[in-house]
Design a protein around this nucleic acid. Structure first.
Lengths: 332, 332
DNA sequence: CCCTAAATTGCAAACCTGTGCATTTGAGCA
DNA sequence: TGCTCAAATGCACAGGTTTGCAATTTAGGG
């Protein structure tokens, strides 16, 4: 039919509008340099002909690419250390907020990231900034990244050194809330279940123990999975002749593992022992008996992470910020 | 320090290697045109100086961008219709396989997709192909996409018309497996719980009913959430004076809703009524009592989806393919 | 030693846009 | 009218890579 199957370009719009190509470029960017009505006319023509700018060329010319990489540790993959539905929810909120801000979301699993230096990814894939999810225990690498001027934010625990910007929930406060709740319930001997090498969990424990007045046991588990917390609790119960009357688990997934172990031992919940989780992830609602938990506001988290990252990209420096946590009481 | 802070480019490598820029370009692509030892030398120099090609420029020049969009319906977002941890697992596997194939993963939530025509996204964001996850009931749009020559694959139910390529699990077979299991258990009256406007669920039901010889009730629910299946079952039990002795729920999430309802009514599981889910998602393992379910192999799914999409992008046409499903028996 | 083909390499155009600067246009004013 | 000034637009180049084609070098055969 037509002379060439070539997709429509900026030159074509320029010709149709009877102006030069640069004018079209400026018009589409909303530059104040170009006359209002010309601008409007050009826009109308572009729209009618279904023209959209070529991102590759645009990216090449500007240095900014409008691409944010989200690095996440996927569950159910061989080398995954952290696996929790909570991260999925967070990912959804971040993705939406990035879309609102006109940013593309480049999804990376930690596995693929570890294979090549992150800096490479930046320039190679044209990534403007990075959001790390669930990267506990990588402070070294992250600090090095920050020193190299890579713009990024992290979801996680508040860092000791303020080398980079972290957004997280107020884990310490969350832990205190749980302690208060246990106290209200009249419990006297508590146990915390969680890995001892995980920053967020450590803070939750620290908050809890600062508030808790009764007996306190800490049960360290090797990872945050359902299985390992279940096994750990079973083993503990086997080797002791008493049991705590309240257990605070570092996450909902772990809490359910704890519940499973308690039930297996014939304890009745919550009369013999009450259990509290963390995250307010779907499983804590669906589980029966449903679980009292500490909610982290993932929607606010997504918005805040994105906002801070954008500012960091602009060159501003941003303080870390911990979101308010909230106790969700459910029958247990 | 140095003259310019300009990032290292192909010209620099060329100068260092004492060759021209095009030669470097070809060497890095592994072109057979360039001498083996020259190639090796150039590669070594590039590596040593940490040079990586500028993707924007590369994309501009080639027409291919090596970017695959994954469109997913995130849970816990306002307009989300489908929300299941199962999709998270699938996403992880797809993401990994795409990384293996050297493709970037552009993550899109359905919300942002619906706001602008998909075709725009393609050229604007430089997307080479799309993978749709959980897009049941969009056949119209998808067919139109296919007719416009957009390369994409879908995870979901086998389509009536073979206009585009779908990968999914063999839902019908999955349903049959459940029916067999119920029969083995000596159950006589069954109920299927699931929405009646969801293709995959319909097939699961169809498979089930083709194999099931006993009494059969179909309980239609409005969406696939925990809440609505729980409510539906409660309501049903209230308005009937008997109950089935086996329930097949369209997904694990729904199965847990069903369990919750049954327990609320004081039925004991599995003696009064056995329940079976679908997906083998984490919650089915963690739940207590843990749930018999039908497993879909998400790892194979990811690999297959990606492989087919790549071929479609190359221009080949691909048949839809349903993966084998497998019954996972757990105490219930 | 000359000729031809193959193996390498370099030249220059092309991909599509953004932007500094010069140029044109038109208005306002003495 | 002649001048200045601001607004609007166009020119031309830059950005980093790929690739068709020409040019050069090398090897092999007569």
């Amino acid at each position: 039919m037509t002379h060439k199957k070539r997709p429509i370009g900026m030159v074509d719009i320029a010709r149709l509008a009877g102006v030069s190509r640069p004018t079209v470029s400026r018009a589409l960017q909303g530059s104040p340099l170009v006359n209002e009505e010309t601008k409007e006319r050009i826009r109308e023509i572009a729209l009618r002909h279904g023209y959209i700018v070529n991102r590759s060329a645009q990216n090449l010319r500007r240095k900014r690419n409008n691409v944010i990489a989200v690095v996440i540790d996927f569950p159910h993959l061989p080398e995954s250390r952290i696996s929790d539905p909570f991260h999925f929810e967070l990912l959804g909120n971040i993705s939406n907020e990035l879309a609102n801000q006109g940013q593309d979301v480049l999804l990376c699993s930690t596995q693929s990231v570890h294979s090549e230096p992150l800096e490479q990814m930046l320039s190679s894939k044209g990534v403007d900034g990075i959001i790390f999810l669930g990267q506990s225990g990588e402070e070294g690498e992250l600090t090095s990244l920050a020193n190299n001027g890579v713009p990024f934010v992290v979801w996680g625990a508040e860092p000791q050194k303020k080398e980079y910007c972290v957004v997280g929930s107020n884990n310490k406060r969350g832990g205190k809330l749980v302690a208060k709740r246990f106290t209200e319930l009249g419990r006297t001997s508590a146990m915390f279940v969680g890995p001892d090498d995980h920053d967020e969990m450590k803070l939750r424990f620290s908050g809890f123990s600062s508030e808790w007045k009764g007996a306190l046991e800490e049960l360290a588990v090797k990872d945050i999975s359902f299985q390992s917390s279940r096994d750990a609790v079973l083993h503990w119960l086997d080797s002791h002749d008493w049991h705590p009357d309240a257990i605070f688990a570092g996450s909902d997934t772990m809490a359910i593992g704890v519940l499973s172990a308690l039930k297996a031992k014939g304890l009745s919940i919550p009369s013999d022992c009450t259990v509290c989780g963390y995250d307010d992830s779907p499983i804590s609602i669906y589980h029966s008996p449903s679980l009292t938990t500490v909610k982290q506001d993932t929607s606010a988290a997504g918005i805040l992470l994105v906002a801070k990252l954008m500012k960091i990209i602009e060159g501003e420096i941003q303080e870390s910020e911990m979101l308010r946590t909230e106790l969700i009481e459910r029958e247990t």
